[in-house]
């Protein structure tokens, strides 16, 4: 056996993993004859011992064991963990990422512009007014569709979402039946920073890569411009779009509803009319 062949078996000799006794004997014979290989063998042994002496086995943190056991229980009870549904949301988030930043810049600029306009000019354009109302929601929609923020409820089971919403919300929201769309999740947090009240429901509907986000809040909590409120109370459905997101605002006797979507304005209008 030569040096090269011997080296192939050095680790096995170090670890006492030699299965074939004939090979083992040959390797040992070579090592006893060849100083270089013997040195190599001794060094490898020493390396292993050093690793073993310096790098110790760590105990598993208790909280890890507990959280694994808890998550198993949660999965068991039919409430899929975030991990489960997050993967469903992810694939469609990719094309969004590319526009997320410019969109954010555009929205921020828009908001600033609106603020400036409203300060220096009393007469505010209706279109901009509405854009201001929905920009918070659009941001919320964006961060959810990109997977940057996580809705409190995510499930492939629409009934589960409904039950969760009904048990958590402070009012009874409308569950629109949107043809071909499924409810995949919901959030209850209020994206309007200025209202500071957790009194709204955001339902997330999905069909493949298409998302519709239905925001609902009691009319009394809705902080919006009187002009817009008046239009809605008259029964008007306002459709518009900002960049790639289309939206619709409408009201019922006691709820204010807003749909945000990555569909075109026309498509959203068509779908919502079918859903009524």
């Amino acid at each position: 056996m030569d040096c090269r062949q011997t080296r192939e078996f050095l680790s096995a000799l170090v670890d006492n993993e030699m299965i074939d006794s004939q090979i083992k004997q040959k390797v040992e014979e070579h090592i006893n004859r060849c100083a270089t290989c013997k040195n190599e063998f001794e060094l490898e042994k020493k390396t292993k011992q050093t690793i073993q002496a310096k790098v110790k086995i760590l105990p598993v943190p208790n909280e890890l064991i507990n959280s694994v056991l808890n998550q198993v229980k949660t999965l068991q009870n039919g409430h899929p963990a975030y991990l489960n549904t997050a993967q469903n949301l992810k694939p469609m988030s990719k094309p969004w990422l590319e526009i997320a930043f410019p969109l954010g810049v555009v929205l921020t600029t828009l908001l600033l512009a609106i603020l400036l306009v409203s300060v220096y000019e009393k007469k505010v354009n209706q279109k901009e007014l509405i854009a201001k109302e929905v920009s918070g929601l659009i941001n919320h929609f964006d961060s959810i569709s990109q997977g940057l923020s996580k809705p409190e409820i995510l499930s492939n089971d629409p009934t589960h979402v409904r039950n969760e919403i009904l048990s958590r919300a402070s009012f009874t929201p409308i569950f629109l039946d949107i043809p071909e769309f499924e409810i995949v999740g919901a959030s209850i947090k209020d994206p309007h920073l200025h209202s500071g009240n957790a009194k709204c429901v955001n339902l997330i509907y999905r069909k493949g890569e298409k998302l519709i986000f239905i925001h609902q809040a009691p009319m009394s909590y809705a902080s919006m411009h009187d002009d817009v409120k008046k239009r809605i109370l008259k029964g008007e459905w306002i459709y518009d779009a900002i960049k790639d997101e289309s939206f619709a605002i409408w009201g019922t006797s006691d709820l204010i509803c807003c749909a945000i979507s990555n569909l075109s304005k026309e498509e959203l209008e068509k779908i919502l009319k079918q859903s009524k």
Binding site: L64, S67, V68, Q71, V72, L75, A81, L83
Partner: peptide
């Protein structure tokens, strides 16, 4: 990583 592994394993 361990948590993810166990969740996948259970599923």
């Amino acid at each position: 990583l361990v948590q993810e592994t166990y969740m996948k394993a259970f599923r």
